[in-house]
Amino acid sequence: MTAGTDHTQPVGDLDTDVSADVEALYRDGITARRGAFAPEWADRLGEDVAAAFEEALSRPGGAVGRGPHRYYVEIHPEQIRDFVGLVDHPWVRSVCAAVLGPDYRIVELGFDVPLEGAVNQPWHRDFPMPEETRSERRLTSLAFNVTTVDTEEDMGPFEIAPGTQWDDDPSFEHGMFPPKSAYPRYEELAVRKYPRRGDISARSALTIHRGTANLSAKSRPVLVLGVDGPEANNDERHDMAVTRAYWESLPQRVRDHLACPVVEELTPITQKHTIEGLVMGDA
């Protein structure tokens, strides 16, 4: 964080003191809360993700490739049993409000699954840098990651280059993929993450990162929760929806931040949030 600059949004009393997390997000592009959930909670989430993954693979367009043996699936909130417990967790709520302001919007729910044989992804960010970030050095969205397994070295850990959320280079292909000539810098900065069941992280999806090679016989599913500030428009890339009955069962505090259609019946999502260089398997 720039010395003397306070990026925390003025949102009144927060449930949890997240000032150190805000500082970490602006400095490193990532922060985390260890043990936010019980391991048993993560196990139930893992069951829900496994069921959704099986369903997605059974139909055309249900899952999108993010490189060889690596998939992304967007889902509806009702496909996990404790969506409310996730989005209404005091740390999640407080980080969103502090970084994005009181009018933050939940726009994405999905998961990444690196299977056995997944290879190193190219270094990338998930979308081009917004103008607010470029000109004002301000983050306008966050991605929360929740692992459903205890991550081990051979399972293809997530790798991130701290501080690179501010990298702004016209040579980035599609505004997301740095040239291979820049890889040595990212490899020098790179930190591998080994979250365990119950941990949750928050990051700027602009921070340069990649999934690494899964050399094990195990998959490493990770839930992704995408949250926008008022000026972001990532909801255009997603098709999350809730049924009317589910909407009416939600606490008002959750409904206030849930930016998605309310429908009579859910339609399975055909994936459209593709990332060209990852779909092509350019690792």
Rank of each mutant, 00 (worst) to 15 (best):
M176P: 12
H238I: 02
V22Y: 02
D112M: 08
T270F: 05
R34D: 15
Y186C: 10
H124K: 13
E188I: 13
I269W: 03
G4D: 13
M1K: 11
R210Q: 01
G12N: 02
D150R: 05
T267A: 15
E159C: 14
D43W: 01
E264C: 11
V87Y: 00
V149Y: 02
D256C: 06
V95L: 05
E236R: 14
R197Y: 03
E47A: 09
R237L: 12
L142N: 07
P77G: 05
F127R: 12
Q9D: 11
L115G: 06
D235T: 12
I30V: 15
P157N: 13
G156R: 00
I80W: 00
A259N: 11
R203V: 05
R59M: 14
V254T: 07
A97Q: 05
D154P: 11
L189M: 09
P178C: 14
D228H: 05
E159F: 07
L278M: 00
N233W: 09
I200F: 10
V18L: 08
R93T: 15
L142M: 12
Y104R: 09
D235L: 14
T8E: 11
E23F: 01
A205N: 04
V227Y: 00
S141E: 07
A217P: 06
G85D: 02
A56L: 04
T243P: 01
K180Q: 14
A56G: 07
P60M: 11
E47I: 02
V254H: 01
Y246P: 02
R210C: 05
F158P: 04
F144E: 13
E108D: 11
E23V: 13
A38E: 09
A32K: 06
Y71P: 01
V149G: 12
R125H: 07
P60K: 11
D168E: 10
F127P: 08
H89Y: 11
F127T: 15
A202G: 09
P179V: 14
T243K: 01
E74D: 03
R244H: 04
R44W: 06
D88N: 15
P178I: 11
E47C: 10
E265R: 11
Q271V: 11
Q271C: 13
Q165W: 12
S19I: 02
E159R: 11
L14N: 04
A20K: 03
R197I: 06
I208F: 01
L115K: 13
A50N: 13
D88E: 14
G67C: 03
M155T: 09
I208P: 00
E131N: 13
R138V: 10
V64E: 07
Q121H: 00
V222A: 12
L115S: 12
D228G: 04
L25E: 06
N120Q: 08
P230E: 06
N120Y: 07
A241H: 04
V119T: 09
P102Q: 15
D28M: 09
L250C: 06
E276R: 09
R244C: 06
G281H: 00
G101R: 06
G277K: 04
A38Q: 09
N214P: 03
P77S: 03
T16Y: 00
P114E: 03
Y186R: 06
I269E: 08
E231K: 09
V84Q: 03
P10F: 08
H7R: 14
K193A: 10
T274M: 12
L142A: 10
